[in-house]
């Protein structure tokens, strides 16, 4: 099935460097995962549950990477996502855990904060034409600082603090039992997923459809491809850029809720370096840093690759967790270099 997806995307006529990057990504994921299955076959790696765990642990990352892809399509970047997640998680934990506010208002508040955060960044980038990196870097430090302003301690959300949120976090959606495996005692354990996985997959599908079939989605590609000609075509470049950042921060807030459902806590150090995971996922998934090229299916595979690296490092058990960061950074570098080589070849052919 994965192969057909590649073929459909890159029919021979349009098979260019960009589709090639996507193909490399999917191939890389398959190779990495298979290697993991062979090397760690006695540690439960080949089970379907391990594969599903990739989605469960990375649900937040998948949401964030979708937003990041939208921003990167316009040629920008958003490095504030990690801090925004920390701020949102802290807010959720503080509001529900310490203040005892019910779950639904807190979730709505977090989503609203995402929109406001994105609107401010988007206005500065779109209308005042300040470099996206500077603005979102200020956003990064602002978010991290605000997390500490809300509370400097680590807060865990326990069952008696908020029953509803707890039940969301622990809800299991069990898949048919024949997909499962039999454990040592002869009992069949059915694989399961969590609601966050459904949220993440819904985000991927919605953003995929938006990018492909709506006016806004195609405008993102146009703005990233060439802002001048997009403006000549009558697109409101400033507004579209601003909307992209709002979308990114909003998806980041959804991601933060997924992330918080996983960790059930808020702390100042949470999600540090999350931005590089999101950016790496997008870049590995074939989104060009210069804008105009990319799609969320690639980003999804980017996230899975990212998750597989972490999974491999943790399954190994002996390696330091920093090796996962190093590997992600190295992979990001490799893909950035590949991209720039493709771009150079393209320019030469022209």
């Amino acid at each position: 099935m994965k192969q057909t997806a590649v073929k459909k995307d890159g029919s021979r006529r349009t098979f260019n460097g960009n589709n090639m990057l996507l193909a490399i990504t999917i191939l890389l994921f398959v190779v990495m995962y298979t290697t993991g299955c062979i090397v760690y076959r006695d540690k439960g790696f080949p089970h379907l549950q391990t594969f599903l765990n990739l989605f469960i642990t990375n649900a937040g990352l998948i949401c964030v990477a979708c937003g990041m892809t939208c921003v990167m399509l316009t040629g920008g970047i958003d490095i504030s996502v990690g801090s925004l997640i920390a701020m949102d998680c802290m807010l959720l934990a503080f509001g529900m855990g310490i203040k005892g506010i019910p779950c639904i208002p807190m979730v709505l508040l977090v989503l609203a904060i995402g929109i406001v955060f994105g609107a401010v960044q988007g206005y500065l980038i779109g209308y005042l034409e300040i470099q996206p990196f500077i603005v979102t870097m200020a956003g990064l430090f602002f978010g991290r600082g605000m997390t500490a302003v809300i509370c400097t301690d680590q807060i865990s959300i326990t069952q008696d603090m908020n029953q509803l949120f707890y039940s969301w976090a622990n809800a299991k959606i069990t898949l048919p039992a024949f997909l499962g495996y039999t454990n040592k005692k002869g009992k069949v354990i059915a694989p399961f997923i969590r609601p966050t996985v459904l949220i993440a997959l819904a985000v991927v599908v919605v953003i995929f459809l938006v990018l492909k079939y709506t006016k806004f989605g195609r405008a993102l590609y146009a703005v990233g491809g060439n802002p001048v000609s997009a403006a000549m075509m009558g697109l409101n470049v400033k507004k579209i850029k601003m909307q992209a950042y709002i979308l990114s921060s909003f998806l980041c807030s959804i991601g933060a809720i997924c992330y918080c459902l996983n960790t059930m806590s808020g702390s100042v150090q949470q999600a540090r370096g999350f931005e590089i995971d999101a950016i790496a996922s997008s870049v590995i998934g074939g989104t060009l840093l210069t804008g105009g090229v990319g799609n969320v299916i690639g980003s999804l595979f980017g996230c899975l690759i990212n998750g597989t690296i972490t999974q491999l490092v943790t399954t190994n058990g002996k390696l330091l967790s920093s090796w996962a960061n190093i590997a992600t950074a190295a992979l990001l570098m490799a893909f950035i270099i590949l991209q720039s080589i493709f771009a150079m070849v393209k320019n030469r052919n022209r």
């Binding site: 200020a138 430090f141 600082g145």
Partner: peptide, 17 residues
């Protein structure tokens, strides 16, 4: 020290604006 970045972030935005 954890909270100080908020102020600095606002200053940096003010300057670039």
């Amino acid at each position: 020290t954890d909270q100080a970045p908020v102020v600095k972030a606002i200053i940096v935005i003010a300057i670039v604006v």
